[in-house]
Write a protein that binds this DNA or RNA. Structure first.
Lengths: 116, 116
DNA sequence: GTTGAATGATACGGCTCCGAAACGAATTGG
DNA sequence: CCAATTCGTTTCGGAGCCGTATCATTCAAC
């Protein structure tokens, strides 16, 4: 069964999640950072800077900077590829997995609260 | 029937929408701007700077600046309240309504594409 | 009136992000 | 080997957003 939403439900879902994130004290990830983080955690590895840049349709420095920021937050880690030392492999972290999991729970909770 | 999502579905939904927005050429709204815009379009008026600030749990300058930006984009408009000229009433625009509507359609489309 | 409160806007310094260009390191191909 | 390519990073100037503090305007109370 596909997930069917009515227009107002769809917008209310997004509103409620955005509100929850804004009200939360934790620093917000940008839309791009969110897209990168979820790609890393939902799609099969390996993940490289170049691959992520192509996937998002952005330039490489955008990925480098986002990985800098999320690396400082402990959400992802970087390692040189030992087979081709030009590559950087982006890996998941325990803290990042927890963050993503909590975010999924938030979406589920807000979806369940939607009026009919 | 409530909207039930499984964890991976919830995260994939968010990922697909974030990806679509990032790939789009249009400038991204920040999370706060999004929350403000959806609040204006989903909740009954009147909307004031102070009311929106309280609703989001942020300071008033955040709202003023977001309204500046979204006003330049044509997504909202501001008008002095003639009953109490200290207040500013935030109003919807045709362009903003179209933007919100398109965004709702995007969510619905991505939700319908989710794997089971 | 005049004082005090309320509302929204503005000024300031700081931080992050952006795109384009240039860069160093590593690999490939002749 | 050595030039050309690939990959990720860094640099640069510019732009946007942030929180705090302050401001002008308007209203309310006395």
């Amino acid at each position: 069964m596909a997930v069917n939403l009515r227009p107002v439900q769809a917008l209310q879902l997004w509103q409620q999640i955005a509100l929850a994130e804004v009200r939360d004290d934790a620093p917000d990830l940008t839309l791009r950072q969110t897209a990168i983080l979820l790609t890393i955690y939902l799609e099969p590895p390996p993940h490289t800077v170049r691959g992520l840049a192509a996937h998002l349709g952005v330039t490489k420095p955008v990925i480098t900077r986002a990985l800098d920021t999320m690396g400082r937050m402990g959400l992802v880690s970087r390692h040189r590829d030992q087979n081709d030392r030009r590559n950087v492999l982006v890996k998941r972290t325990v803290e990042g997995a927890l963050h993503v999991e909590r975010f999924g729970d938030l979406i589920i909770a807000k979806a369940a609260e939607l009026p009919l």
